[in-house]
Amino acid sequence: MSRLGEIPIRIVSRTPAASTGTIGAGVTAILIEIATQLDRLADGGEPGAIDLRSLPMSPGDREQLLKALGPGEVTITLKGDGESTINETGIQGVWWSEYRDRGGELIAGFIEIAQVPAILPVEPDQLRRGAQQLRAGAAGAAQQPGN
C-alpha cells in the first residue's frame, strides 16, 4: 500500500452530489460574500479576497461555485517558480487565483475581488530599476565599437 488512494476507506456521509443542480447553502454564502465585496470595491473600497482553503468545500461545492461564476475572458499565467494561473470569472472583477509551486502542487487558492489582481502591478522602485537596467544596457551597447 504505497498510495493514499489505496487505503481502504468507508464513506460515512456523502456530501450532496453536485449533480442535483441546486446550489448548496455554503456556496450561496460565498456568492453573497463576493457580491458584497464587489459593491464595496465599486464604492471606492479596498479590494478583497476569499481564501479557498479556509472554506471547507467539497469537490461538488467547488464545481457549483465555478459554474455559478462562469468562465471569463482574461487568463493570466505567472511563470515564477512554477506555473500559477489567475482566471477572470464571468463576473468581471472577480478573479480565481491558483498559485502553484515548482512541482505543480497547489499552494494557495483564492478568489480575488479587484480591478486587477494585486500581484500584477509593478512598484515604482521596480520601474526605476528597470529603467536603470535599460540605460546600463544601452550605455554598454554604445561603448562597444562596431555595434
Binding site: 479556509s54 517558480d81 498559485y99 499552494i107 494557495a108 483564492f110 494585486a118
Partner: peptide, 26 residues
C-alpha cells in the same frame, strides 16, 4: 532571480497555510 511576484506568491501561500487573511500575505 526570485521576482517580487514569486515572493508574493509564497508569502500568500504561507498566509493561507496559517489561516491569516489572504491579503496579509502580500
Amino acid at each position: 532571480g526570485v521576482s517580487r511576484r514569486t515572493f508574493i506568491k509564497y508569502c500568500t501561500a504561507m498566509a493561507s497555510a496559517l489561516a491569516l487573511p489572504p491579503l496579509a500575505g502580500r
